[in-house]
Design a protein around this nucleic acid. Structure first.
Lengths: 211, 211
DNA sequence: CTTGAACGGAATGCTCCGTTCCGCTAGTGT
DNA sequence: ACACTAGCGGAACGGAGCATTCCGTTCAAG
């Protein structure tokens, strides 16, 4: 352990954070990682984990809930952004990439039984997402639907190279690229060729939440 | 089993194909799938598998080798395509998405020790890839490098929904989108904003082959 | 009718992992 | 000063999953 700044309880409180951060890092890197890996990364024993969370599933739920909260916060921030809609939209997606909430929500979902509370948060997130979409719609290439946001974010976050900073850098690279394609171009009337096949439906996306 | 058209050997020969197809399907869907899942999907017993491949690793190597061969074949076909370079390039990437070679090579690599033969094939694939790049270069948005191909393909193939046909459809959707962004636009001199950060290097990509 | 190639699937012997349990240590309250 | 216990480290336990092996069966070939 590091040092005891102000006694036992302070140390324990600090561990709360250390453990959560470690869990986040470990499960983002590998959603199937064992509990022991989290303990090791946090530099604590296993019992320090089980003192706080009754089971692995509970820890995962916590991470997922936090991720969703972060997502909601970013959405609200985006809606409050009073710059021009497109700039705000770009900032929104880049922020989501930085937060890496996707790995915490979609990727972890399905590994545990969702709580009603979590479900409600997901609904709220969906509404905010829709609001952002409405706000950006006129600047989007025709054919783009809300559901595309999630799909694209998922693709972007599938990028994984050993180094975290470098991974982030590359994610922003491809996000920049795809944002260009998503933007409505003023020149062409249709804004590029028709996108093939029907767009993703919300049902297709939420289906993956089921175990 | 299905039916015995012309005796035992014919049945065995047919099983060769059935098993390979099953293995491809199963491991594409889940790279960590157990051997038993392949047997079940093929509708044969486990021993039918072990009669043909000494180990799971050998089967995976076979799949990977085949996948790489397919990739090479598609590259050669693309280079032989005498339509205009951009159309040929689009067709190339769409073909690669259909072949889903990515899941068979990159995704499976790292789960077994590569053979020299496989390594050589990878080198050959890299050279062809480079050739396609050179041929398409002038139609590509400045800033795009060869390594981007692999990264983008990887992102596209990260899309996975239960249904195979639908998955393929969506992959083509996003490939179409990203191809738009990759194309050099005639209007703007630079063709869009600078892509942030250094592009992926070949080293970063091949690093993942190591176990 | 005999033989053995090809096979189905149960049995084996691991490895891995979530969870529990047993001391130990060092703040805390008196 | 001292007993008490919150908080903890990490070994031990039990079960699940899986690659591989093994054995009995079948049936075309000769």
């Amino acid at each position: 352990m590091t040092k005891a700044l102000s006694g036992r309880q302070a140390q324990a409180a600090r561990n709360d954070e250390v453990i959560l951060a470690a869990a986040r890092a470990v499960f983002i890197a590998d959603p199937g990682a064992p509990i022991a890996a989290v303990a090791e990364q946090a530099g604590v024993g296993i019992s320090a984990l089980y003192r706080r969370y009754a089971s692995k599933e509970e820890l995962l739920r916590k991470l997922c809930t936090d991720g969703l909260a972060r997502y909601i916060a970013e959405s609200e921030k985006a809606l409050a952004d009073d710059r021009d809609p497109w700039t705000a939209f770009e900032a929104f997606l880049h922020a989501l990439v930085d937060a890496d909430t996707n790995s915490l929500t979609q990727r972890l979902a399905g590994t545990f039984t969702p709580t009603p509370e979590l479900f409600e948060a997901a609904v709220r997130a969906g509404e905010l997402n829709q609001a952002v979409y409405e706000r950006t719609k006129e600047h989007l290439r025709p054919g783009i639907v809300v559901e595309d946001f999630a799909m694209i974010l998922e693709q972007i976050t599938s990028i994984k190279l050993g180094d975290e900073a470098r991974t982030n850098q590359l994610r922003h690279r491809y996000l920049t690229l795809v944002l260009e394609a998503m933007r409505r171009s003023g020149e062409q009337p249709g804004g590029g060729p028709e996108l093939p096949g029907p767009p993703p439906s919300s049902g297709e996306l939420t289906d993956r939440w089921r175990v």
